[in-house]
Amino acid sequence: MNIFRLFGDLSHLAAIAILLLKIWKTRSCAGVSGKTQLLFAVCFITRYIDLFLHFVSLYNTEKVMKLIYISASVFTCYLIFFKFKATYDGNHDSMRAEFLIVPAAGLACLINTKFDAIEILWTFSIYLEAVAILPQLFLISKTGEAETITSHYLFAQGSYRALYILNWIYRYHYESHVDTIAIVAGVVQTILYCDFFYLYITKVVKGQKIVLPA
């Protein structure tokens, strides 16, 4: 474990917590893409499938973190699609999730380190996570704005994988550990946030709201 990965995981936890708090406190999921949250839930379930296969005692933080990610993302989907369904902005959350799931699944079968079920599920989860934020970014571009709290969520969510890139550089240098699939997907994922990062740093930090040119 290195500092970059630690802060990456903390940033990821913060993102999940910020979104849950936003929906719970405002009792509304306006401006939140339910599809992105569904895709994240699929990512966690397919990536941490080992939790379901052998229920080893919860002796280490990794297992606890995995359980937190899975339960928090499923609970977020429950809030969006059931509890606060009336506030779900289905019209603007219109990016076709199948256009992300099918290519990720296809690519996972073609490019993977080992052709076995667990590895392919993990690879699928990595590829899907790289593009899972697209429906959320698409929704913001359609509505032309993002609530400040949603911007903080996106910043934390984008920072998590950016910090993981630093973690991979660290591990390459000190542990000569390389996982090309995770690195390439992580770089693609972080690049998708660049536009948002620019808006966040130039606007939200100064207390302005993000409003995209309609």
């Binding site: 990965r5 995981d9 990821h12 080992d50 296969l53 052998h54 990794e62 973190m65 995995k66 990610y69 080992k114 076995d116 667990i118 590895e119 993990w122 993981y164 973690n167 996982d179 995770a182």
Partner: peptide
């Protein structure tokens, strides 16, 4: 064994 498949990162 399947457990050694498990990645060491989240």
């Amino acid at each position: 064994d399947i457990m050694d498949e498990i990645k060491d990162e989240l």
